[in-house]
């Protein structure tokens, strides 16, 4: 009996070892959810705080362009995945001076406030739908500030090289109805940053594609400084460039308040 068991065990091990090379090598060590969790950490939670000057180029299928320029400040509050974002618009001219504050919580809807400079109005924004377009671009709010890890189920599909990087290929399927029905992500094994993401719609057709076009090391944090979101069906895309990126600059939590919505902190917003 012992020898049979031994053979079976060996056989199982052999099968596992064979399988490892082709199907799911790291399955024993790492799950799709682990990978996405680490991706979020690298992509959205690097360091305690973050600032960047952000330029967006929105291009339609005729090649017509619109531009947005904003400064983004981010702070991790240290409570789970809660974060605070401050966004100040420099361009286009008709939204100059508009400021936007988001308090993102781990397990409830975000709180969002908007400051409209022409009438000195701070207004609370109803924020139910994280999949709405961010400032008219191809990015949604959750593309910018992240999606709850628990909102999707994950499956590690494969491992392959993409754009010259060894990647995990992870599929995410929303647990409840969402703008996409399936998302396939190529995640760099080394940096855990997304290299490419494909969003599929209800007809299981490719709807949007995210690509990380340039990654730079900023103070030890690999950072996607140029990225594109392409709406495949509408032939529209948005390219985003981060400049003057800073981590752990010592942003004070007090900046993420109504006071500074009305008066942008000059030290951080130029």
């Amino acid at each position: 009996m012992q020898s049979v068991r031994g053979v079976l065990s060996l056989g199982t091990l052999t099968l596992l070892a064979l399988g490892a090379g082709t199907v799911a090598p790291a399955a024993a060590q790492v799950t799709g959810e682990d990978i996405v969790s680490r991706e979020q950490q690298a992509f959205l939670y690097a360091a305690r705080d973050f600032r960047a000057d952000v330029s967006m180029r929105l291009v339609d299928k005729e090649g017509q362009e619109r531009r947005r320029k904003l400064t983004m400040l981010r702070l991790d509050t240290g409570e789970g995945s809660s974060q605070k974002y401050y966004i100040y618009f420099h361009e286009p001219a008709d939204v100059r001076g508009t400021a936007f504050l988001v308090w993102k919580y781990q397990d409830k809807d975000d709180s969002r406030w908007l400051f409209i400079p022409a009438i000195k109005l701070v207004t609370r924004v109803a924020a139910k739908d994280a999949q709405s377009s961010f400032v008219g671009s191809d990015f949604s709010y959750e593309d910018i500030s992240g999606r709850d890890l628990g909102a999707d189920s994950y499956k590690l599909l494969n491992e392959e090289a993409r754009e010259g990087k060894d990647c995990y290929v992870v599929e995410a399927v929303p647990k409840s109805s969402s703008a996409f029905t399936r998302k396939v992500s190529w995640i760099d094994k080394k940096t855990f940053l997304p290299v490419r993401e494909e969003f599929y719609d209800v007809q299981n057709q490719l709807a949007r594609v995210f690509t990380a076009d340039e990654v730079k090391d900023v103070g030890g944090h690999p950072t996607v400084v140029r990225r594109t979101m392409r709406d495949v069906k509408r032939e529209h895309h948005t390219e985003v460039v981060f400049e003057n990126v800073g981590y752990d600059s010592g942003l004070d939590e007090g900046l993420f308040s109504e006071r500074y919505l009305q008066k942008p902190p000059a030290q951080w917003i130029k």
Partner: peptide, 10 residues
């Protein structure tokens, strides 16, 4: 009371 109904309606 205000709320968002879908991605582009308030």
């Amino acid at each position: 009371y205000k709320r968002q109904m879908g991605p582009s309606v308030m």
